[in-house]
Design a protein around this nucleic acid. Sequence first.
DNA 1: GATGAATGAGTCTTCATTCAT
DNA 2: CATGAATGAAGACTCATTCAT
Lengths: 195, 195, 195, 195
Amino acid sequence: MSPRTSQQYEQIRAKSKKKIFQAAVELFSSQGYHVVSVSQIADKAGVAKGLIYNYFESKDAILQEIIHQVSSEMIGFMSAMEDEKEPKKRLETLIRSTFKLLKEKKDFYSLIMPLLSQPSFSKEVKQSLASFIKVIVQDMEVSLSNLNVQYPRIEALTIGAMIDGIAWHYLLIYKEKYPLDEMELKVIAYIRQLP
Amino acid sequence: MSPRTSQQYEQIRAKSKKKIFQAAVELFSSQGYHVVSVSQIADKAGVAKGLIYNYFESKDAILQEIIHQVSSEMIGFMSAMEDEKEPKKRLETLIRSTFKLLKEKKDFYSLIMPLLSQPSFSKEVKQSLASFIKVIVQDMEVSLSNLNVQYPRIEALTIGAMIDGIAWHYLLIYKEKYPLDEMELKVIAYIRQLP
Amino acid sequence: MSPRTSQQYEQIRAKSKKKIFQAAVELFSSQGYHVVSVSQIADKAGVAKGLIYNYFESKDAILQEIIHQVSSEMIGFMSAMEDEKEPKKRLETLIRSTFKLLKEKKDFYSLIMPLLSQPSFSKEVKQSLASFIKVIVQDMEVSLSNLNVQYPRIEALTIGAMIDGIAWHYLLIYKEKYPLDEMELKVIAYIRQLP
Amino acid sequence: MSPRTSQQYEQIRAKSKKKIFQAAVELFSSQGYHVVSVSQIADKAGVAKGLIYNYFESKDAILQEIIHQVSSEMIGFMSAMEDEKEPKKRLETLIRSTFKLLKEKKDFYSLIMPLLSQPSFSKEVKQSLASFIKVIVQDMEVSLSNLNVQYPRIEALTIGAMIDGIAWHYLLIYKEKYPLDEMELKVIAYIRQLP
DNA sequence: GATGAATGAGTCTTCATTCAT
DNA sequence: CATGAATGAAGACTCATTCAT
């Protein structure tokens, strides 16, 4: 019964929090934020309801934190293209990264898309996610500029729309039946034919 | 005094129902279904809470009816291309109709997109909307087939993704700042360069 | 379009009120007072909801009036024995009348029994019905006294309990399967064997 | 501090549930199920409204549970006669048990009688209570058969009607003024004079 | 006399959050 | 750190009653 060291405590804390976080991600993404109750999260996480409030200020705070992490992960994923200077390669890398993200982090995507559209969420969160998209589009715009495409902004927005449209159709309309790989190739082909 | 004629009652009913319906559309689309309370709808419509239940079975039923109307309107809009047999013209008409719809029924669209993504909504509703998209894509596939495009399905899905991606970016990310008209032209240009 | 005479109005009034009254009796007795709504009564009566309030102060008032009528009818039925002075005959007549009432006014009885037990009803009403029973029992007590039965009050209460117990079993437990006629004979036989 | 042991929780739960249960019994039996609101129960029990739903699925479920307990207690009480084989003794035991039940569990009885008559209650519940009565009557019928009574069924129904009639008069008509003990003796005397 | 749209107080129920242990 | 009983505000919905016509 020796008292735990503060390091041990730290580990316990981290573990519990993780469990709650995971449970929340799964439930929110599969059922939607409003429909999921704190009790459900606790059940799924296998902890007592009250414990959740040791780690998160509120139900809303859980969501905030999830979104925060999503943003970080997205940025991390995207950093793959950081070093790529050659415009076409850069575009291609960006697209491949996005599709990779889409496949590997399907859960997060499914969670984020509805949230972005849910009009009642904290402006900041939505803006941070929206601005993420904007940054990507802007990056593409620069690449396209360098390629001397005539209307680089329109072209960038088009490619962006294609990608997000594909994600949308994949996650919400066609699901398993969507030819995601072929679509990826199609987008790659599209940018390859650019001047 | 004698009671009102049944015609008068009909009018009164229609008017009240409309008020409630309108209020619900505005609130749902600007704040999201779950966040809006029946009391809010009543307040906005300027009627007593109870009256809502004279016209709608439940809060959910209001949504159903809204969606039903959206579906009808979509189908109506799309019928513009019914007579167009020439493949390229048909594709073009379809695209123009969609953009028109997007501009004129912005409210409805903003309401529908989140709903489609909200995982917890009645399957029927989501399926009916999803199948609407599928039908459009299939129609495009036929046109593209007739044009002897190599992979008509992939091409159809690409155009579909572009359109929905544009809608998504317009309604949820860029809003007023989105160059919707230029994007429309871009999509038209895209199909024109097809074989 | 000659104006109706006041007599005609009187008839119309009486007719409408009767319709409402009947509908209420049937619904209350088959479903219970609290469960039946004013709208249901209006529907069943084939009149507008509002009309009910032309004839009755409130939902409760309808019930009061029904009960009032039941009381009157009971008293009327019982008057059959008024002239019968001979004790045994008098008792027998009373029993026969009760069973007749039970058979012919089953609806009313079914309505009254629950109400009597429902603790929350207007004291007056309940007391008036309770006192009806008490009066009957007292009448029997007198007859039994005249027959020199040893404990006329206990005997009267016993016969009263038998009758009401039979009614209770018939209406609420066994229903159609209850041998009501045999039970009537049994009660008659019981009093016949008294001294 | 460490959390309570699960045993402690069990006790707390049992205690709270009991408080709610008790409050419901008293209110339902004194005012009637429909008239009592969940808030009233909570107030009387001295708990928050919401807590009730930690222990009962719904208002209706409270009633179900009460009735379930009544049934159990009735069966328990009646088991006194299990071993009694001699017909007259068996009948007598049964009657004494019933009167004992009537005196000791007056509250429950007052609650049950109205419910049985209330037409709108769950069939199961009513049938289970009705069948309880039927079982008792049948048991008496067997005993009476063994006594070679001429019409054992009619006789059994008569005794049953007497008992329930007495209960009815006692609980709902005469209350404190009812000579319950004398009536008990009277019923006993009645069966003693059987062949 | 008759209609039925409209009202709003009141009902049951849910659930995020607190807190004693 | 962890538990889950308890709270109460808020939500969807019902229904007796009113009232303009």
